[in-house]
């Protein structure tokens, strides 16, 4: 399976999630979008949206905390799968090769970015990242379109945000160090169970690292690289020796998969 096929699959997954969310809204089975999806009466809030709004704890019912716990558990188990397969900005990573990445640098930048964003949000009493969040902007544009109140300026604003992230900040910086959504998922994922693992066929040729959009040296099996990995599968597709594959493996278990 080549990288171009992965790009097509990723386009499909991004579109399928949006289509599902529109269909759920139109049928009334679930309401809301990425920022908060209410399934039946169970709200699943974006963990980052929640963290920026400390007053929610006092202002609402415990249901929101249960939904949040489920979301966090899913992230902890699966890591940055959202970044690699659902996020509309994450699609841009498919066009990148990046050789100079460093798992440790990514985690450090993510920590600083997430912490500074949350501190400024709490000081201002305003969820500042939600203003820029590309996922939230897509969500809002769809919600406006569904009610027939979408205006051209809101679309232009969305395009501006996407342009700044992809052209000015550059995607590999955004997804590999700035985006607080990616940061939260990376920092929560030391326990994730789906990991790309190198088998004994690996010759340490580093073709995987050169093809990784974030420059991760996933074949070395370092925790920091696994945390930043978006499971985009590019390394798996590009490995000439078919040495890499996704495996269910827990860092807690003593038997590491290495066949």
């Amino acid at each position: 399976m080549g990288s171009s096929r992965l790009l097509k699959i990723n386009l499909l997954t991004v579109a399928a999630v949006i289509a599902t969310y529109v269909a759920l809204n139109l049928s009334g089975v679930a309401l809301g979008g990425y920022c908060l999806l209410s399934l039946g009466n169970m709200p699943f809030i974006c963990p980052l949206g929640f963290l920026q709004r400390p007053s929610i704890v006092e202002a609402t019912t415990h249901a929101i905390l249960i939904g949040l716990a489920i979301t966090l558990a899913l992230i902890a188990l699966h890591g940055r799968i959202f970044c690699g397969w659902i996020c509309p900005i994450g699609l841009g990573l498919r066009f990148l090769k990046h050789d100079k990445g460093n798992g440790r640098g990514i985690i450090l930048a993510f920590s600083i970015s997430l912490a500074s964003m949350l501190i400024v949000s709490w000081i201002l009493g305003f969820p500042i990242f939600c203003l820029i969040c590309p996922v939230g902007i897509v969500s809002r544009i769809i919600a406006s379109a569904l009610t027939g109140s979408l205006d051209l300026w809101s679309i232009l604003w969305g395009i501006t945000i996407f342009a700044v992230i992809t052209l000015v900040l550059r995607i590999h910086n955004w997804c590999g160090g700035v985006c607080p959504l990616g940061a939260l998922q990376a920092l929560l994922s030391p326990l994730k169970i789906l990991r790309i693992k190198a088998s004994s066929r690996c010759t340490r040729c580093r073709i995987c690292a050169r093809n990784c959009p974030l420059g991760l040296e996933i074949h070395k099996d370092r925790e920091v690289d696994h945390m930043s990995c978006t499971a985009c599968m590019k390394c798996v597709a590009e490995c000439p020796f078919k040495a890499l594959k996704p495996a269910l493996s827990s860092p807690l278990s003593s038997t590491r998969l290495r066949n």
Partner: peptide, 17 residues
């Protein structure tokens, strides 16, 4: 208003309802 802007997640559920 200030608290509203913090609490509202812009999910659009009230508009749907």
């Amino acid at each position: 208003e200030k608290l509203f802007l913090e609490l509202c997640t812009r999910c659009g559920i009230c508009v749907d309802a």
